[in-house]
Simulated assay, not measured.
Amino acid sequence: MYRAITAGIEVSVEPIFLPEQSDPEESHFVWAYQVTIINHSPDIVTLISRYWHITDELGRVQEVTGDGVVGEQPRLEPGDSFQYTSGCPLGTPSGIMVGRYTMETETGDQFEVDIPAFSLDLPGQRTVLN
């Protein structure tokens, strides 16, 4: 489990390798990742957009942006949480994802919330850090 807290917004991520959707012989590896967002701040916030920076083990970078997450722009009151699952295909057996959410308060103020960097690794594969 990977976790970051920014401005009272906690984001935790748990990646899971999906062997049934992967085909190593075709250099196709797929992970799901479950994200939990908890609002520990005193403000009501809405998740407006997301940004992902995905790097595979060869250093190739993919950037993904979009409105909300999984087709939603969740509104979180103080103490509320929101959980979703999404996925990431890679052409290599490992990689790293990191990102941020843009949140908006009820008064229209926007701020960035860190999504912690997390590792996508093939189970049983030896991990080498650069």
Rank of each mutant, 00 (worst) to 15 (best):
H53G: 07
H53C: 10
I54C: 09
I54V: 12
T55K: 14
D56G: 13
E57Y: 05
E57K: 11
L58E: 15
L58D: 15
G59F: 09
G59W: 10
V61F: 08
V61K: 10
V61R: 13
Q62L: 11
Q62M: 08
E63S: 10
E63W: 02
V64E: 15
V64H: 08
V64F: 10
T65R: 15
T65Q: 11
T65S: 14
T65I: 09
G66R: 05
G66Y: 08
G66F: 07
G66E: 09
G66C: 06
G66I: 06
D67G: 08
D67M: 14
G68S: 02
G68C: 01
G68K: 01
V70P: 00
V70E: 06
V70Y: 03
G71H: 01
G71N: 01
G71P: 00
G71A: 04
G71M: 02
E72K: 10
E72V: 12
E72R: 10
E72D: 05
Q73C: 06
Q73F: 02
Q73H: 11
Q73I: 01
Q73M: 07
Q73K: 14
Q73E: 06
P74F: 10
P74C: 07
P74V: 05
R75C: 00
L76K: 00
L76V: 02
L76N: 00
P78W: 12
P78C: 14
D80T: 02
D80H: 07
D80G: 03
D80R: 02
D80L: 03
D80K: 04
D80C: 05
S81D: 09
S81L: 06
Q83K: 04
Y84N: 03
Y84C: 04
Y84R: 03
Y84S: 01
T85N: 05
T85H: 04
T85M: 09
